[in-house]
């Protein structure tokens, strides 16, 4: 157990738990904040764990997450805000 692994444990324990709490409550756009922060945290945790395990090839995981996490968040924002057809309590659904 070196300092890097310890940092990884702290990040995934103390950091991820609040994100999970936020992402499990409230309206979708509020949950998105939790998911987004979790993406950053997990990416950093991947980097730290790669250093801790002494396997530099594990950094690819952080690279992929760094590329995909913004894409995933943009997917959500696209469908939450950019959909004029979204019915329900928010806004007035416009007929096509």
């Amino acid at each position: 157990m070196n300092a890097w692994l310890l940092a990884g444990v702290v990040l995934s324990g103390a950091g991820l738990a609040p994100c999970m709490w936020v992402s499990a409550r409230g309206a979708p756009h509020l949950r998105l904040v939790g998911v987004n922060l979790a993406g950053t945290l997990v990416a950093v945790a991947f980097l730290v764990l790669a250093q801790g395990f002494g396997r530099s090839s594990y950094q690819d995981l952080a690279l992929v997450l760094g590329v995909l996490a913004p894409a995933g968040t943009l997917v959500f924002t696209r469908f939450l805000a950019g959909d004029p057809h979204r019915p329900g309590p928010s806004g007035t659904p416009e007929p096509e």
């Binding site: 090839s57 690819d60 995981l61 992929v64 590329v67 995909l68 894409a71 943009l74 696209r78």
Partner: peptide
């Protein structure tokens, strides 16, 4: 990822999914 499949974690499936996601950035 596809090209380094035999060296580091990754490979055809993972790299292919990343490629497909990248293209859909044009949509999102």
């Amino acid at each position: 990822l596809v090209a380094h499949g035999q060296l580091s974690p990754g490979g055809g499936f993972q790299g292919g999914v990343v490629l497909a996601t990248g293209l859909h950035l044009a949509y999102v």
